[in-house]
Design a protein around this nucleic acid. Structure first.
Lengths: 222, 222, 222, 222
DNA sequence: GATGAATGAGGCTTCATTCAT
DNA sequence: GATGAATGAAGCCTCATTCAT
């Protein structure tokens, strides 16, 4: 007969969460492959073996981390567009995404960088949360097309990919620009620093109107 | 005094190239970390140790591979825009890039996926070839802004990143869609198949004019 | 809160000691360079990786082995001369050293032979325990010189080296003579067997009075 | 039909000698195991494969080097005692040996250090030249014993070992003291510098008369 | 449940040696 | 004879995972 008190249960979930947070930090710091399970355990303040009470493997740890964070992202995005009129949802979606990157850079780092570190994710692992993400974005676009507000030439799933590519690349550039450069001063790929929240307006501008310089008659009708 | 016949020389450089090609295939198939040096050697038809006559380490092999391919990409892009009038260079650049992805899917796979497999690349390794790539794209945009053809609101380096994000994501989706899905049938992230060459027009359309449905007065003035 | 029973603690230190003993045997049998870590592990009854829980590297294993044994030797020698009147300490020191070689031939083999197997030891590794050894011997000599009992012509540190050379060479010859000769029967360097404990008297005789045949008037003054 | 001109033959032996000299330098610098065959080839100014035209293996290279140098040492010692009256031969032998160390430190380094680096030499390889060396020294001692000049208590082969131990240890200490210390300043085993030629008198003094302070009546009888 | 010492499979790399030129 | 690119066997070490306590 085993009794689980509330505190025991919360302590349990607390430990799982501590491990996930530790993994997020270690993965962000070293990358998935270079990260050591023992390092994650130490960061979480648990024994190495304890991790295997909550996760099947190091892979499972990354997958679980990704799923949890991506689910949170999807929920936040859903909430962000919930009260917004349809025609403004695309703008709201993009702004909310980049705001999240700004507010949770550690999570963003895992989502943008580490997600790509493993063929397991790019190839073998079928990723329902990311599919949800794309579906949500594609749905916004489809609705816009149906309302006649958006150009219907581009298939929505391709357009969604393009938009995701834009904001993901911005997130990546921003995350990398935050890092103290190892080879500081060397002119290289290290992205220039910029305000990612402000960049949301640029993305929206590009997505809505493109880069072509607005002719006088385009936006200001008489 | 040593005499190298032409065949000797070409055989030597041929061996280096064979190793690079083998590495490209193996990296694309398994990912950088899961790839085994011995596997690359076998694929190249050389002994394991031979690889170390041409490359310092497994890391160096990936870096060399990336640098060579990226240099080739940059040269191809430079050639693609050389004879094109300035106002059409952005379109030419994008179309050429996606055409390259289509023609060299193996290289594209390494550039889009494996490049991201190692923290060495995302964080530690300063990447001059990618910097060149961004500079070329940014230069096209800056010229367009100066001619007044492109909106100058967005900093060119940010716009270049956004455009790269779009086409890189498309390349990734296309490469992954080509793969025989391991979990075939499962509805997931596996991208839908599409024609990446044709997608170039969509990208150009989005970049130039955005997604906003063209109102009668926008492009067709009365 | 972790409780270590006495048996747990001893089992742990026991494992370290078992590895050292195994290394001593394997190094003595094959030499440091030809010795395989996996062989040491098997001899110690542990997994290969276990060795690296207790020692940083194969080199560290040899260094640790040397330091432990040499420390033990120094302690034994210190004890051997502790209760001895100053004028007899040199004799006691030499006899104790060769007695140790006799009693611990495995350790002697590592100290005399394997110690010299690695440039790390002869050149790079500064060896505090051996320095202690020489200091102890030099101290005995210096005290003898101050009491006027020993000739002060030779610097004590040189004399200590010479005495060490003698007993070390005897130890080496004795250790090698014990081995079942691979090329048995061949007249070669394989030293003749002799009683190393008895040889102590020869060393003391040489060190005290030299080889010159004692003239009647030398030791027996009128 | 192959004709070898004199110059060809000398060129050949010259190449062999160059390889031996290169090996001596490289072995002295890095030790036998850490020395690389390719390094020796470069130092000798020949191709890697050329070494195998003159020597069977890296081991054979060390053995040949040792045998040649040790033969030279034996010849030099034989010459050094040839014209010397029997009672002075031990002194002449010791002085000549240490003088050789002084004049050919590279060879001495190989003989004293590298010789001991390989179990091949200490254990497996039966060493006729070293046997000759000991025989020569033992012969001098035996003759002295027969003339009644030397104490016959100690077996000559043991006494020869002891004397060799002394001078070999001095040679080692002197060779190591010559090296620019890596950890300069650290008080350790790095031997103090001393004049090895002058040390010959100390050795002779110890061997002949021991360390016991000479009583007035010992050496100067009325 | 929690621990962390122990495991052991397996990779990257080195380098003595070979052999086609 | 000389070359040096190529070979490939084999070792040290790492680290995800297990399991006795």
């Amino acid at each position: 007969m085993t009794v689980h008190s509330a505190s025991e249960r919360s302590e349990r979930s607390d430990k799982r969460e501590r491990i996930l947070l530790a993994a997020e930090r270690i993965f962000a710091r070293h990358g998935f492959f270079a990260a050591r399970v023992s390092q994650i355990a130490k960061e979480a303040g648990v024994a190495d073996g304890t991790i295997y009470l909550y996760f099947k493997s190091k892979d499972d740890l990354l997958i679980s981390l990704f799923e949890q964070r991506m689910t949170q992202v999807n929920e936040a995005l859903k909430a962000a567009i919930a009260q917004v009129p349809p025609k403004d949802q695309l703008r709201a979606f993009i702004k909310a995404y980049l705001q999240l990157v700004h507010d949770e850079p550690g999570a963003a780092e895992v989502l943008t960088i580490e997600l790509r570190q493993s063929s397991k994710f790019m190839k073998e692992y079928d990723n329902p949360q990311f599919a949800d993400f794309l579906r949500m974005l594609g749905g916004i676009l489809a609705a816009g097309q149906e309302r006649g507000e958006l150009d219907a030439t581009i298939p929505t799933h391709v357009a969604a990919r393009m938009i995701f590519g834009m904001i993901d690349e911005l997130a990546l550039a921003w995350v990398l620009a935050r890092q103290p450069s190892i080879s500081a001063g060397t002119p290289g790929t290290r992205p220039k620093k910029f305000d990612i929240v402000r960049a949301a307006d640029w993305v929206v501008g590009l997505v809505m109107n493109g880069l072509t310089a607005s002719s006088p008659g385009k936006e200001q009708s008489p």
